[in-house]
Amino acid sequence: MAAGGGAHTVTGAEGGVVLAAGCVLWRHSPHDGELEICLVHRPKYDDWSHPKGKLKRAEDPLAAALREVEEETGHRCIPGARLPTVRYLAQGRPKEVSYWAAEAAEGHFTPSREVDRVIWLPPAAARNRLTQPRDQRLVDALLSVLNPA
């Protein structure tokens, strides 16, 4: 564990799972009022994803998700429904990411080393821009929450 409260991992039964959290950040377009989803570009991986990051030691997953959204997009957000948890291997280690739907509130994006670009896209375009299929499924989950049958 790095000094200063690095990533939180769970050991024992879960065998060192890296815990992370994020949000599928959405808003109504300021131009036409249609739904838009925010994606972040991470230059280290050259990928497009939803804002997310590792939990700090003893950090609540929702608190981590809200912190990561603000750090990566510059926007505060209003959390909504819990979305599916995504599990996968990252650099050979199991990773578990808890997600929430979240409506964007005030804020302004400032590029950083971790995230150099954000884009707001309609759901179909966001689904197509996302690098990982597991992230594409989260768009569908958001739409199910916002437009229940």
Rank of each mutant, 00 (worst) to 15 (best):
A126M: 04
H50N: 12
A124E: 15
L138I: 07
V18C: 02
G74A: 00
G12V: 00
D116V: 01
H31T: 15
I37G: 07
K52P: 01
E68F: 02
H28D: 15
E68Y: 06
Q91M: 07
E59G: 06
G6I: 09
L66I: 14
D135F: 05
V17D: 11
H31L: 13
R42Y: 01
Q136K: 15
I37L: 15
E114I: 03
L66R: 08
D60H: 13
E71D: 12
R57T: 15
G6D: 11
A65S: 08
L146Y: 04
G33E: 05
L142N: 06
G15F: 05
L138N: 10
Y88M: 03
V69F: 01
G22V: 11
V145F: 02
A3T: 12
E59Q: 14
H31R: 15
Y88T: 12
V69W: 01
Q91R: 08
G6V: 09
V118N: 04
E106N: 11
C23E: 07
A13G: 12
R134S: 06
V115R: 08
E103L: 03
W120C: 09
G92K: 04
A149V: 10
E34Q: 15
D60P: 09
P51N: 03
Y99H: 08
T11W: 09
E103Y: 08
P84C: 11
V145L: 06
T85Q: 10
P148F: 00
V139D: 13
H50R: 06
L19D: 05
S98R: 07
P123C: 01
A90I: 07
H75R: 02
A90V: 09
G107W: 01
H75Q: 04
Y88V: 00
E96L: 02
R113N: 13
E103K: 14
Q136S: 12
L39F: 14
R137A: 11
S144K: 14
L130S: 11
E71H: 08
E103P: 02
K95M: 06
T11I: 05
S112C: 11
A64G: 13
S98Y: 14
S49C: 10
L39W: 14
A124K: 15
